[in-house]
């Protein structure tokens, strides 16, 4: 539990962080809340030579709504999201997801940007940002670009972030009209990560599904949008049968993970059951 030697630099601004990252390249790792990186370093699975701490950059920590969009700075902590009155009002899916995440200490330190950039296959945030059809805004040496969430998660611990880029912001359209959201999770008994985590963001009109976003984590090497589920809901009356039929597509085309706790087959089954339950909860909340 002893890391290799490294240098630590606390960046004061995004520009400084970008320039440090440009200088140290692959030798450097960005430090946000540290709850994935530090354990990996202690086990010497990660051995960066330079740690660039971006968690102290004040400009990267915010939750605001402007011009019909919700914007969350990447260094916003899980707790800030969990306790945000604005989000509880306009997008309760995020505070609800935060309550499932780690424990109090983790939520006080860990950040949404750090979690997304790490792309742990069982992390909670990826499911939520996928369900919200969010954009991940990244800053790089050549300026900024926005990546759709479903293009951001590439593979196990791999994202669309390129060398020299820093995840700056998560943004998505403010949910409009009659909205029903929910996040449900089967916690792994040892790690507390998701065996299955399902995030649902429904827009309902006249009892019918106007649009559906369903993000699933824990099941596959990366979190994914359950487009089969979404399609089966689109335009249909949100009755029990529809939900059930839709949920059956929860792990379509997915190569499911296996570990000591759950086989791939069981995970797929849990994905279906918990998708149906998450949809049911979301529908009951759509008022």
């Amino acid at each position: 539990m002893i890391p290799t030697q490294f240098e630590y630099v606390a960046a004061k601004s995004l520009d400084e962080a970008l320039s440090l990252l440009g200088k140290h390249k692959d030798d450097a790792k960005l430090l946000a809340g540290g709850h994935s990186l530090i354990p990996a370093m202690k086990l010497r699975l990660a051995q960066p030579q330079v740690l660039i701490d971006i968690s102290r950059i004040k400009d990267l920590s915010y939750i605001r709504e402007e011009k019909g969009q919700v914007r969350i700075g990447s260094m916003t902590t899980h707790y800030q999201i969990e306790s945000s009155d604005l989000l509880r009002r306009i997008c309760p899916l995020l505070p609800e997801t935060a309550t499932h995440l780690g424990d109090v200490q983790v939520r006080n330190k860990g950040t949404i940007g750090g979690s997304l950039a790490h792309s742990d296959p069982a992390a909670d945030w990826p499911a939520a940002v996928l369900a919200l059809d969010a954009e991940i805004v990244v800053a790089g040496p050549k300026g900024e670009r926005a990546i759709k969430a479903d293009k951001f998660f590439v593979d196990l611990l791999t994202t669309a972030l390129e060398q020299g880029e820093i995840l700056r912001e998560v943004r998505f359209n403010t949910p409009q009209g009659t909205v029903g959201q929910s996040y449900v999770k089967v916690r792994h008994p040892a790690s507390g990560f998701a065996v299955v985590g399902v995030a649902v963001n429904l827009s309902v009109n006249g009892g019918k599904c106007q649009s559906a976003g369903v993000g699933i984590t824990g099941v596959a090497p990366k979190a994914y949008r359950a487009s089969g589920v979404e399609k089966a809901l689109q335009g249909n009356a949100l009755d029990a049968k529809t939900l059930s039929v839709a949920a059956a597509h929860a792990s379509d085309g997915v190569d499911a993970n296996t570990d000591l706790f759950a086989s791939g087959e069981y995970r797929r089954h849990l994905a279906e059951v918990y998708t149906r339950r998450a949809l049911g909860t979301a529908v009951s909340r759509a008022k």
Partner: peptide, 27 residues
């Protein structure tokens, strides 16, 4: 319900961290 020290068929300790070895939590 939870705990088990697991060695694989080569004798590698698979449940070697608390991310894999499930000690009951308050919940």
């Amino acid at each position: 319900l939870f705990e088990e020290v697991v060695y694989d068929d080569q004798g590698q300790l698979v449940s070697g961290t608390l991310m894999d070895y499930a000690v009951p939590r308050a919940s």
